[in-house]
């Protein structure tokens, strides 16, 4: 087990290194000049732009920039954001908790919801309830994520005015509220993005959960147990559930990229200044260090997700280690 763990972790590191290099090159070899966005106007001479390029090392060969960057990253320094004019580390320190909050809540809810639906479906595979729920799930699974976010915003915020249109919390009053008011205000701002993200991912969870449950319930040992008079409820609760939940969680983590992509659109539409939003904004500003670090971060998340999924599977099923 330890050997597998070490190998798998090394491999994950390799993957991160590969993606990092790739993203660094994709960003830095792109045509165009990152200096300029903040330095336009006829009063800016070429000499000034050149000065700034030199300041950020952009006038050096890409290979040299790469080596410098890797060295910095190895020391935990992600560089300096051109567009925000502060260290990328600070930008991330603000954005990561926000993304974790939004995604974490959406994840919890979508697992709760998705698993409940999955169990309802698996009770009678291919029964009418299963089929109808399946269709609804498939429909939700087919909704364009950005479109759903737009529609939710349009309906619940712009039309019905039930919830604020976006942002973390009230732009002004938040800091002056009492803690319970603050909590309420934050929750109000969380509702729509969390709702959207939950709808999007609970469809995925439910589809997996139903499948896993059906497969466990149709296994020989379970059939035997049921034949021996174990009630369906008890079977699900005591055996099937546990056996089906693990693979569902695993599959979900293995595909965390799906979730990450969905959250990019949701963050964008609801002005939620998390990682997805920060990175997409940085792309528009050609903020090379921030874009590169953003892609690095996303990749690390995805790789970690896959790693966790594999380790969980390995812990659960010793045969996998032999693979």
């Amino acid at each position: 087990m330890r050997r597998y763990l070490v190998l798998r972790a090394l491999q994950a590191l390799g993957v991160v290194a590969f993606i990092t290099t790739l993203s660094f090159m994709v960003v830095h070899l792109a045509p165009g000049d990152p200096i300029g966005s903040s330095l336009q106007g006829p009063n800016v001479t070429e000499a000034i732009r050149q000065h700034w390029r030199a300041e950020y090392g952009l006038d050096r060969p890409v290979s040299e920039q790469y080596v410098r960057w890797v060295r910095l990253v190895a020391h935990g320094d992600l560089g300096f954001s051109f567009s925000q004019r502060r260290p990328v580390r600070d930008v991330f320190a603000d954005a990561i908790p926000r993304t974790l909050l939004l995604s974490g809540m959406a994840l919890l809810l979508s697992f709760a919801f998705g698993i409940a639906v999955g169990v309802l479906q698996a009770e009678q595979p291919n029964g009418s309830r299963d089929r109808w729920l399946g269709r609804v799930l498939l429909l939700l699974y087919s909704v364009p994520d950005f479109w759903l976010a737009l529609m939710v915003l349009l309906l619940f915020s712009l039309r019905l005015r039930l919830f604020p249109p976006g942002g973390l919390h009230d732009a002004v009053l938040y800091d002056y509220m009492t803690p319970p008011q603050q909590l309420l205000d934050s929750l109000k701002h969380l509702v729509l993005p969390v709702l959207t993200l939950t709808v999007l991912s609970s469809a995925v969870v439910a589809r997996h959960q139903r499948g896993e449950l059906v497969s466990v319930l149709s296994s020989d040992w379970m059939r035997t147990a049921l034949a021996k008079g174990l009630s369906w409820r008890a079977a699900v609760r005591r055996h099937a559930f546990r056996n089906a939940l693990l693979p569902t969680i695993t599959i979900f983590f293995a595909n965390i990229a799906v979730f990450a992509s969905g959250s990019i659109f949701v963050e964008k539409v609801f002005s939620w200044p998390g990682m997805g939003y920060v990175t997409v904004t940085a792309v528009a500003a050609r903020d090379y260090p921030l874009v590169t670090a953003g892609v690095l971060f996303m990749s690390v998340i995805v790789v970690t997700g896959a790693l966790v999924a594999d380790l969980v599977m390995a812990a659960a099923d010793p045969r996998i280690r032999l693979r």
């Binding site: 990229a257 992509s261 995805v302």
Partner: peptide, 16 residues
């Protein structure tokens, strides 16, 4: 598999 596809395409398309 570890490349977030949406982000990757946005970055390439926007910068290139």
């Amino acid at each position: 598999f570890s490349i977030p596809p949406l982000l990757y395409i946005i970055v390439v398309a926007a910068l290139w």
